[in-house]
């Protein structure tokens, strides 16, 4: 099977620039009750690249991330304005099915949150609810492929029936990544995926993200500047609910235009 994803593998940066972005956000405002959490944010999310969202706590980067798969819907009192499109389709349009949206825009949480089920059932959860497979063998294969893609298969292949919560923190986070990619999303959102795990596990996940970039558009929120510099191609700097600066990662980290971004990156505040 030669999928569209494979066609993107050898894409050059020139091609990417020409191809329409996978997701487009224009003029996004978010309010939690009276408080405005995000002001007029516009940015694109492209295939084949990792976009890092950085900025001090409370700057709105997680809020923006949660707009992209409409997880803000379940926050009482949250209101989203503006235009966010996935392949040209307005994801906040009334006819948009949020269930289908979330199947295409997957998410990995800050703290590993495996379901209190077996490792196998954790990964099979999404495929089952979306009816992605028609036989047990197919499901087995999908679970194995997802676990392999999340670089977890070799560690768990003999204990698929054990509860997902019995894994270590780093393994749990990779399990959550396997669970997310099992439904073949187009975009993977990661909200500080390494903040709750140790440095060695973090390194494994960073390597994993580098591989996953080939097939998924990845948006990652991180507080770790080195991590953003290592794994992302573009970086967006948020401050007080505004997108202050957006550009290629190496530019942001070496020659940010705004003083705020330079101060933050050099560790002078945050």
């Amino acid at each position: 099977m030669v999928s569209t994803m494979d066609m993107h593998l050898p894409a050059t940066s020139a091609e990417q620039a020409v191809a329409p972005p996978l997701m487009q956000a224009r003029g996004v405002n978010v309010y939690y009750g009276q408080k405005q959490a995000l002001r007029d944010v516009s940015l694109d999310i492209r295939r084949g690249e990792v976009l890092a969202l950085i900025g001090p706590s409370g700057c709105g980067k997680s809020t923006f991330l949660r707009c992209l798969n409409r997880m803000n819907d379940i926050v009482e009192g949250a209101r989203v304005e503006g235009d966010i499109r996935l392949e040209g389709q307005d994801i906040y349009a009334p006819e948009m099915d949020v269930v289908l949206l979330r199947a295409r825009v997957g998410m990995v949480a800050q703290k590993p949150n495996p379901f209190p089920k077996s490792i196998y059932d954790n990964v099979a959860y999404g495929p089952r609810i979306h009816g992605l497979t028609s036989s047990r063998a197919e499901l087995d294969a999908l679970v194995e492929r997802s676990l392999r893609d999340a670089a977890l298969w070799d560690e768990v292949k003999d204990r698929l029936r054990e509860p997902g919560t019995s894994l270590s923190g780093g393994q749990q986070q990779r399990l959550c990544i396997a669970r997310a990619i099992a439904v073949s999303p187009d975009v993977l959102l990661m909200d500080e995926p390494c903040s709750a795990i140790d440095p060695i596990a973090t390194e494994r996940i960073e390597m994993l993200i580098e591989q996953l970039r080939q097939r998924y558009a990845i948006v990652i929120v991180t507080h770790n500047m080195q991590q953003a510099a290592r794994i992302s191609q573009r970086t967006a700097f948020f401050h007080l609910g505004e997108l202050v600066e957006l550009g290629p990662t190496h530019e942001i980290f070496t020659a940010a235009r705004s003083e705020k971004a330079r101060d933050y990156i050099s560790g002078r505040f945050g």
Partner: peptide
């Protein structure tokens, strides 16, 4: 976080309740 994990995989609220929340 368990509810969000399930919802972010595209599960409906009903699926989330019957398959994740109630078993937990």
């Amino acid at each position: 976080s368990l509810r969000e994990g399930s919802l972010s995989l595209g599960a409906t609220q009903a699926e989330t309740i019957t398959r994740v929340v109630l078993p937990a």
